[in-house]
Nucleic acid binder design. Structure first.
Length: 633
DNA sequence: GTAGGGTTAG
């Protein structure tokens, strides 16, 4: 891992414009011409009422156009468009296509297939417009066999020369990750393709993780539009190559390409994952400067970004200012509050959510249970877990068990947590055992901890973290020969060691440190600062705890290894460059070790600084010698 | 009337 990864964070350096992609063309009918392009359900009902008032409900054309408007409304319930279709006298292919389109976008897209075969039997004709809708439905429930059948119909009925149909086919196969088939359609008639065909291929390669192929395609495309760019950016971000995604976004802006909602949402998500507050803020300020609307997706991505970048205050501000909120937005806010240890606020928000009549999802409960755990609300946590299953019919997933095990473990109810794990219908994953092991360690249940630790190593012998956990509990039990044995086992098996890093932003650049890092351009100053900090902490009575260092080396060297953990280098660097009245914000990929946690607390006490540290699973707000996690993590 | 891209999770 290179350190001092310098990446200028100015995604909007040029005067490129932002645009929202317009929704599909609104169907035209004189009476319905005032219906907005993406109407809300009430607006749709208003339009319907107009038709009733003017006595037009018997007009096939008017009703079919109303149905066309339904397809552009995301909140119209399926029974409504079925009812409209049922009122149309001798429905023609236009009406049938529009119902197909409505169904394809509904929660049960496969209904459009049922409707298609039924209307064919009833003698309603198909035309070239029929298949893009039908294939869209197939793409949303990607079952290869059904789409392949539709493909056969396309060929049989002679629509395989239509560009829109071909593109829908490419998209369908790409959605099913059947890239060989996509390529076949794509290459069949090279003259019958356009930028949409290329974009569908690009998305397919990105989805199947073939980033290098996608990259090559992107480079070689005869023409690119905003969707090509946002698809490629998404490919990088979803493939975990976040920095490349951010870089391409900047290039997109610099080239003067219209920035679309998908690109914004994707780069906000990348900033969130990397914890790049300055980068995220810059994207936000530009969204504001260019009057880009805070849509549901953009608002949610902002709420999530601010929470993940350590600024729960700004996250709340965006959430409160959102013109409308859906369950995604609420989930992001509830989960954000919970990871910041603000359990009470998260539960209050959940209550508001319920009061608004919204239905929680399984993700909502991850946030709620997590909030209970962080606030030590054992009884409430049990109650919500029960309610999730019984009142909302949500099957508990591994994440929910994780929260409950954490909740019980934190409260010292380790045997109850163990019982819960053993009674699960799905087999517990290593993370769950790791959570329980953590509880054993905190509460001094060393024998049980050792048993679990051994189980973990057995479950996944290639994961170095498990050996570290097991060795850690042996160390706590002062069984030094076992510590050495486990450490040897780890190196003999050649486990995959995940390199730990800490990242800090300063004045538009990102600085990444690994343990013992000497690559940073200010390295010598960083070490001098670290030494100074060590001296001051020593005077204040801080003693490094070397029990978490597992290397088979002398004590003095152990102290050395621990004093060069990546978070300490980042803290030292933060002390050098971050204004004294601002918190030092650090993002780590792994969990913070016990001693670095203590070190961070001491720094805030001795130097009067504030440190916000995001580790592998939560936030630590260090202030005046204390941490928001109350020393349990 | 048509096709392509996106957000939440221990």
């Amino acid at each position: 891992m290179r350190s001092g990864l310098s990446c200028r964070c100015s995604p909007f350096s040029s005067n490129a414009r932002l645009s929202l992609r317009r929704s599909s063309t609104a169907p035209h009918h004189p009476i319905l011409s005032l219906v907005p392009t993406s109407p809300s359900f009430p607006q749709l009902l208003q339009a319907h009422a107009q038709l009733v008032v003017r006595g037009l409900t018997a007009s096939r054309a008017a009703m079919a156009h109303l149905l066309a408007h339904c397809a552009l409304c995301t909140s119209a319930p399926p029974h409504y468009f079925h009812a409209i279709y049922a009122r149309i006298d001798r429905p023609n292919v236009f009406a049938a296509n529009n119902l197909l389109r409505c169904l394809a976008r509904s929660a049960a897209p496969s209904d459009s297939l049922l409707f298609y075969s039924r209307s064919r039997r009833a003698g309603v004709l198909t035309n070239n417009y029929t298949f893009p809708f039908l294939l869209q439905a197939c793409s949303r429930t990607p079952v290869v066999a059904e789409g392949a059948q539709v493909h056969a119909h396309v060929v049989k009925l002679g629509f395989d020369g239509d560009l829109y149909v071909r593109n829908a086919l490419i998209h369908f196969y790409s959605s099913c990750c059947e890239m060989d088939e996509s390529e076949r359609v794509f290459n069949e008639f090279p003259e019958r393709r356009d930028v949409v065909s290329w974009n569908a291929m690009l998305a397919g390669y990105a989805r199947t993780g073939r980033i290098d192929v996608a990259e090559e395609l992107f480079e070689g495309m005869p023409e690119r539009d905003a969707i090509s760019w946002s698809t490629m950016i998404m490919g990088y971000v979803q493939g975990g190559i976040l920095e490349k995604g951010l870089k391409l976004f900047r290039e997109m802006v610099d080239k003067g390409e219209m920035v679309n909602e998908a690109a914004l949402v994707t780069v906000l998500s990348a900033s969130a994952q990397l914890g790049l507050l300055e980068n995220g803020q810059f994207i936000h300020s530009n969204i504001k400067a260019r009057n880009f609307p805070i849509t549901l997706a953009v608002g949610t991505a902002l709420v999530d970004m601010y929470a993940k970048c350590g600024s729960i205050k700004l996250s709340k501000q965006v959430f409160d200012g959102m013109p409308q909120r859906d369950v995604f937005a609420w989930n992001a806010m509830v989960c954000g509050l919970a990871t910041h240890g603000m359990g009470k606020e998260a539960l209050e928000l959940f209550q508001r959510f319920l009061n608004e009549g919204l239905r929680p999802t399984s993700v909502t409960f991850v946030g709620v249970l997590n909030a209970c755990s962080r606030a030590g609300l054992v009884a409430e946590g049990r109650q919500y877990f029960k309610s999730m299953i019984e009142d909302y019919g949500i099957e508990p997933e591994m994440e929910h068990y994780g929260c409950i095990v954490d909740l019980l473990g934190r409260a010292g109810l380790v045997s109850e947590a163990l019982e819960l794990i053993e009674g699960m219908s799905v087999s517990p994953d290593p993370v769950l055992w790791g959570t329980l092991l953590g509880a054993c360690k905190i509460h001094g249940l060393l024998d049980l901890g050792i048993t679990i630790g051994n189980k973990l190593v057995e479950l996944d012998p290639s994961h170095d973290g498990h050996y570290v956990l097991l060795a850690g509990i042996y160390a706590k039990a002062r069984k030094w020969e076992d510590v050495i044995r486990v450490r040897r086992l780890m190196s003999n098996r050649g486990t995959n060691k995940v390199a730990g890093w800490s990242l800090i932003e300063a004045h538009g650049s990102v600085h990444k440190f690994v343990a013992g890092d000497r690559e940073h351009k200010d390295s010598s100053e960083v070490y001098m600062t670290l030494e100074m900090i060590g001296r001051r902490l020593g005077e204040a009575g801080y003693m490094p705890d070397v029990s978490s260092v597992l290397h088979d080396i002398g004590d003095e060297e152990k102290v050395h290894a621990i004093t060069e953990h990546s978070e300490r280098l980042a803290i030292a660097f933060g002390m050098m460059v971050v204004d004294a009245d601002l918190p030092i914000r650090i993002v780590k990929n792994l969990r913070v070790c016990g001693d670095c946690h203590e070190f961070s607390k001491m720094v805030t006490k001795v130097f009067g600084r504030e440190i916000v540290m995001r580790d592998g699973s939560r936030f630590h707000h260090f202030k005046e010698g204390n941490c928001s996690c109350l020393d349990y993590w």
